[in-house]
Amino acid sequence: MSARHETLLWVAQRASAALLALCVVVHLATMIYAIQGGLTAAEILGRTRGNPGWLAFYSLFVAAIAVHAPIGLRPVLGEWLRWRGMSREVFLVALALALAVLGMRAVLGMFG
């Protein structure tokens, strides 16, 4: 990979990490706040269904994960399994798509 591609991945990794730091804090804080006094699936869905704010927040969360996780896995595959070259990149793009699709499926289920 060229210097341009490597640096682009590095910037994407750092930017998605910054988003994740924010998203994880909001996610955990909301859970801790909402769970006081017990919580049911129906209650959660009652708050999230049709709420565009939560749809936007969790869509951003999923996008950040789909970008962040494959880039982080890339050097692990390279250094531990000696897996480099185009086949690794194809695998990681597939992983990013899978995370995005599965994540958005859950988000839309929560919204719709």
């Binding site: 210097a3 341009r4 991945l9 050097p75």
Partner: peptide, 15 residues
């Protein structure tokens, strides 16, 4: 120089 050090085995590989 920047192109030489930012490639596949360059600075971004540092943990």
């Amino acid at each position: 120089r920047l192109r030489a050090v930012a490639g596949d085995a360059g600075c971004h590989a540092c943990h």
